[in-house]
């Protein structure tokens, strides 16, 4: 991990967007993190807003206790801002979903290994499922800016679950949208659309994928069949985010475990066994 660069920072909410489905996207002013973070990295966010410094030690912010991991979906070093997105799943995300501009949150980060690609892998296909598009938005923008040809294939359950799609228009060379019920884009699973795209469109130098476990297992299977280099960004429940609690174990093919927080969250597909 890039532990050398881990900092405890305060993120000031400058923008809070919400949708009726429990989706939220927060833009935070956190200059040090914004300057350091690379695509694929994440931050651990304390779910309780900070109070005035002189009262901070008096406030018990211990339920929920643990910070929550969030991929960075955008970083702007000039403005000193990062953005993260999530959906309400439990107590922690419900609190963060209620964040308001002007509130401050404690962050640890940036954490984890970023997406790393040789320059020669020019044509990239980003395959995202649901909220898994978050790190791909950041990666797509940066890799496109550095000369890669970036296409996106994003899949969602249904039209109202579509997030992050519009902004890909700014940098994506090809854009493919799928929903399981066909209410937006093509009807079907991203793994099925991916198989067809690889057959029809010809060569892709690397796939970058992020999404739910079942989707990632299917996508890595398709990539393996097509012999396309594939990087996956994994999401697991985490206690600490920096390698000491050993909670976020993911199986390696040899039966031992890797940690998503420090060995990942980005892995080469063959480094992890997603079927376990």
């Amino acid at each position: 991990m890039n532990a050398e660069t881990l900092v405890k920072a305060v993120g000031l909410v400058t923008r809070a967007e919400r949708s009726g489905r429990g989706f939220f996207r927060l833009t935070l002013h956190a200059p040090e993190v914004a300057r350091k973070v690379q695509p694929g990295q994440f931050v651990m966010v304390a779910v309780h807003p900070l109070v005035a410094a002189e009262a901070e030690s008096l406030v018990a912010r211990w339920d929920p206790l643990l910070r929550r991991p969030f991929s960075i979906c955008r970083a702007d070093a000039n403005r000193g801002e990062i953005a993260l997105m999530g959906e309400t799943r439990g107590r922690g995300s419900a609190l963060l979903a209620a964040a308001l501009p002007g509130q401050r949150y404690s962050l640890l980060g940036p954490l984890g290994r970023p997406f790393r690609l040789e320059r020669a892998r020019r044509r990239l296909l980003l395959v995202g499922g649901g909220m898994g598009v978050a790190p791909l938005l950041f990666a797509g923008e940066r890799f496109a800016a550095s000369g890669h040809e970036v296409s996106v294939l994003f899949g969602y359950r249904t039209q109202s679950a579509v997030v992050g799609w519009e902004e890909t228009a700014a940098w994506a060379a090809g854009r493919y949208l799928a929903t399981e019920d066909g209410s937006a884009g093509e009807k079907g699973l991203v793994s099925d659309v991916l198989r067809r795209l690889l057959a029809e469109r010809g060569k892709v130098d690397a796939i970058l994928a992020c999404g739910p476990p079942g989707m990632l297992a299917a996508v890595t299977g398709v990539a393996r069949e097509a012999r396309v280099h594939c990087l996956v960004s994994l999401e697991r429940a985490m206690g600490c985010g920096f390698g000491v609690c050993l909670s976020c174990a993911v199986a390696r093919p040899d039966g031992t475990y890797a940690l998503v927080c420090t060995d990942g969250p980005v892995f080469a597909a063959e480094e992890v066994d997603l079927t376990v």
């Binding site: 929920p64 206790l65 643990l66 107590r91 922690g92 697991r236 429940a237 206690g239 609690c245 050993l246 909670s247 976020c248 174990a249 993911v250 199986a251 039966g255 031992t256 475990y257 376990v276």
Partner: peptide, 10 residues
């Protein structure tokens, strides 16, 4: 190698 995940719950 430790226990299989999930290994932690809040």
């Amino acid at each position: 190698s430790g226990n299989p995940p999930p290994r932690v719950v809040e």
